[in-house]
Amino acid sequence: MIQKNSPGLNNEKKLLEIDKLTVSFETDEGVFKAVDDVSFHVKNNEIVGLIGESGCGKSVTALSILRLIPSPAGRIEKGRIILGGKDLLKLDIREMKQIRGNAVSMIFQEPAAALSPLHKIGRQMIEGLMLHKNISKKTAWNIAENWLKKVSIPDAGERMYSYPYQLSGGMQQRVMIAMALMPAPDLVIADEPTTALDVTTQAQIFELIKELRQSHTSILLITHDMGIIWEMCGRVIVMYASRIAEEGNINDIFFKPVHPYTRGLLKSVPKLSTEAGRLMPIPGFVPSPFNYPSGCYFRDRCPQAFDRCKKEKPQLVDLGNGHKAACFLV
């Protein structure tokens, strides 16, 4: 077995600490919790992966950090989000604006969420820079153009004058990546940053991100791509149906997963195969947040469920070395 050297000692300082975060949404069908009692942290210089089935609350967790939960439908009910000692949930709008795109920046899952269709790329890129860094338009323009080159966009000079629709999906995504990395923030929240990128371009982007880490930036990386998690992250958090199911360093999660959900997830990873054929998904679907089963939310898909799982909600148990799991089997 090849073990990865996972960087990061236990005594490193925590940059971000999320404590018992609970976020709810109100819809026509009623109120539900999209994020339920979630706690984790990101240390300085660390790349932490956040994975879990579609709809489990990854993006909502990420958006909470920047306080971008759409209101009034969504609401942070409970919890603290501490960044460098400050509780972000206590800041006023002006202070929060200072944090966004400066100390913390975000690469959104869908480019359309971040790029305005009405303005040219260049203008959108320099806006934030000029706002936070107090530099001239010309300097900002040069920095931005240079970043377009860094994310491998050909004809960067020309592209500064393009509208988003004139770029391919992957190019839009890279523009967003450039915008997020440009200010050299303390924390980058990357929500599926490379879903539209082929592996070779992806590799170039991840080289960039790794370089950035050298210069102190921490990254919270949300992705469903286990290959990327493996190559990039030291530590991984696994969510299932609004709660954390398992957390641990990369080797523990990949080689010694204890939560049945994590195990199933790892089994359904598509392999480079020479024969077309069916994949092995975890049977069943994520329950709707309105009909979570009693007890453990994974119960009706869990091959190992037993009596107790019906009655009680499993809490995260520390297995040592930062490895935690919420399952009665441990």
């Binding site: 994975i51 879990g52 089935e53 579609s54 899952q109 869908e110 999906g169 599926e192 879903t195 539209a196 469903h224 791509d225 286990m226 199933g264 997830l265 359904s268 990873v269 598509p270 069916r278 994949l279 092995m280 998904p281 975890i282 679907f285």
Partner: peptide, 17 residues
């Protein structure tokens, strides 16, 4: 066009199937 790129592996597998 990239039909499953935003999906986690398990849902991805279901959609492919």
């Amino acid at each position: 066009d990239e039909p499953v790129s935003a999906l986690d592996v398990s849902v991805q597998a279901q959609i492919i199937n």
